[in-house]
Nucleic acid binder design. Structure first.
Lengths: 355, 355
DNA sequence: TCCCGGAATGCATGCGCATGCAAACGCCAA
DNA sequence: TTGGCGTTTGCATGCGCATGCATTCCGGGA
């Protein structure tokens, strides 16, 4: 525990530079009142001693940690991997960093939030997870903004950033209808997630509106990942159902799982034997064997919007209820639906850039 | 800034419980000397006030943050996504959490390490990134263990946890040879990474030993992700090369990219027209359209070994040089190499469990 | 020459908790 | 009843830095 070699503090630097500890602190604090000359002296001394300011100590006085907690529920869906990557890049630009919490059997959302409070993070982003309203107010009481990414909690007063899933679902329905589909299968994910619910609703309602009969629309549920979709298709086939004209995978990774199962196991051609569409436009959906028609969730814009809502630069601002205006996603036309591109769609050869 | 409602401290709890602040602190510190009765009183008061201990303040005195920094270079390779997930789960079991650093153009490894030092993390795990030996000793000087995951730095005195990549490469070579391949293409990744280098070396040396002529082994380099491999194949084809008997993708995601390009763009059948193998055994490699023959990196074991090396529970222990014994991976036999399974291989229908 | 104002600096203190030390307490044996 | 020991408790202090306030310094204007 020798001082000086083991744990260098601002006092050590101050001594070497011949200034006070406050000066050292000021030298490392942008915008504080210090002469350029002094700053240079301090930096030189700091360099000699390999001094790095201790942000733990700094957080204790400033009440800012420059850490944002991100709760992740399902990295089995690459969408959230791209989201995480994007968040990290954006925040790092602002000299902020991410404390990750992987939710799962061993870590519920609420227990994660308790950890989050301990760590005095500046804000919390929640993706693919349920959250109780009580938990949210626990954060708000401490002045910690919480933003829900890609979901919302009805009647909770807490909103978030998301894509217009209902509208997106209806776009897929339109495209299938235009291509002449008459029987439909939805492969859905977590039934408690508003994301899946809304997409289903938008899709189904549009079909029904257009005169499709209720029993021409089937719904199979699976875990929200590749294998979940594959298994849903297996169950569908095992039930002896007739192959539908069109399958809507509630998200791209599930659409991909379904598509592979159909092609490899059941020897069906896409889109000739069965059409497929997904949702998200993850970069993987643009890959050669898929070329999946989908609705793009604009990751970059959504992440930026989320970070804006965090008010990281303006912590004293009271936490407001974000306006609940979903972002409208683009319809991305690729190769898994027959016929011509509908009006308003985008023909996309390339993947959405995640990086 | 009203006290009590806005920022509840151990003093507030102490007051309500009718004990001293120390008692509150002890109540929340496992193993400290406190009567059960007192602990209960404290917990009750804490609950009433929604008190959560401030781990920033606690870290300041204990010099332990229970945070581990993980530097990630390339989430474009799902291998590292699975690794991150696994690390997070393992550490969360120990009540520790991950501060992520995404390396890239805007964040070099060395600048990430500077941040890491600021945050007083308990340890650092580095994946898919170069690291200067000076940087490593900067951490060691502060008593922060650094473990390299899946790479090593020759002659640096710093080791890490990795798979025996040379041996793994030779296993692939053997399998190709046994299947009668005579011409070979390697799709390689980052030429500075020891991982890619070692796999290439093991593969190539075994081929040369077995009498394959040097000009029957080609090497095309690409970015270490799906598209990088696809583009490498495109270049290979554009160069007018004859399709080789066997292609070794230096990791699974590149093998998958290569395979898709071959099948979809060049209408080749795998393994009939060209055999393919990868490395890692990411869960994606087991998917239906790939069924990729590969060498498994045992993620769970590797992550556990890494965490052990961190000595998180025993911080005073001097940082030792880890023994540089690479873990031997299993050869996973699936469908992308012709003929029979070589001795010692494992026939694997299922994916490696990442979770 | 003197005075005033702004910039730069240092001093002292507090952020919230952990912990060494001493005091207080309870219990049992003598 | 008393002494002694082990267990609990509280007090006081420090972790490393940020910051309000007082002080010093310096230059320019009168």
């Amino acid at each position: 525990m020798r001082r000086g070699s083991f744990r260098t503090t601002s006092f050590d630097v101050a001594a070497l530079a011949g200034v006070s500890q406050s000066a050292v602190s000021r030298a490392f604090t942008p915008g504080s009142s210090i002469a350029e000359e002094t700053r240079v002296k301090v930096f030189e001394a700091a360099k000699k001693l390999n001094y790095v300011p201790n942000s733990i100590a700094s957080s204790l006085t400033t009440h800012r940690s420059n850490i944002v907690a991100v709760l992740l529920g399902n990295l089995g869906n690459p969408f959230y991997v791209h989201v995480l990557e994007r968040f990290s890049q954006e925040l790092q630009k602002q000299n902020r960093h991410i404390l990750t919490f992987m939710l799962g059997e061993e870590m519920s959302t609420d227990s994660a939030i308790m950890k989050v409070l301990q760590y005095q993070v500046d804000a919390v982003v929640v993706t693919s997870a349920q959250l109780s309203t009580r938990t949210i107010s626990l954060c708000h009481d401490r002045g910690i903004p919480v933003v829900l990414f890609n979901r919302y909690i009805p009647n909770s007063g807490a909103f978030g950033v998301r894509c217009d899933n209902v509208y997106g679902g209806s776009l897929i329905a339109d495209a299938f209808l235009k291509a002449g589909a008459q029987s439909f299968l939805m492969i859905t994910g977590d039934p408690n997630g508003t994301t899946s619910q809304d997409r289903v609703r938008g899709f189904k309602e549009r079909l029904l509106e257009s005169g499709v009969k209720r029993d021409a629309i089937l719904e199979y549920e699976g875990q929200s990942n590749y294998d979940g979709a594959k298994r849903a298709i297996d169950r569908f086939m095992a039930d002896g159902r007739k192959v539908p004209d069109a399958i809507f995978g509630i998200n791209d990774i599930m659409a991909m799982g379904a598509m592979d199962a159909l092609k490899v196991q059941y020897d069906l051609r896409v889109p000739d034997d069965v059409m497929v569409a997904g949702f998200d436009d993850i970069p993987e959906a643009a890959r050669l064997p898929y070329r999946l028609t989908t609705v793009r969730q604009p990751i970059r814009r959504m992440v930026s919007a989320t970070i804006d809502l965090l008010h990281l630069d303006d912590p004293k601002r009271p936490i407001e209820m974000a306006s609940d205006t979903p972002i409208v996603g683009e319809f991305i036309w690729r190769d898994t639906i027959l016929g011509d591109m509908p009006e308003g769609a985008v023909r996309s050869v390339d993947a959405q850039t995640a990086g």
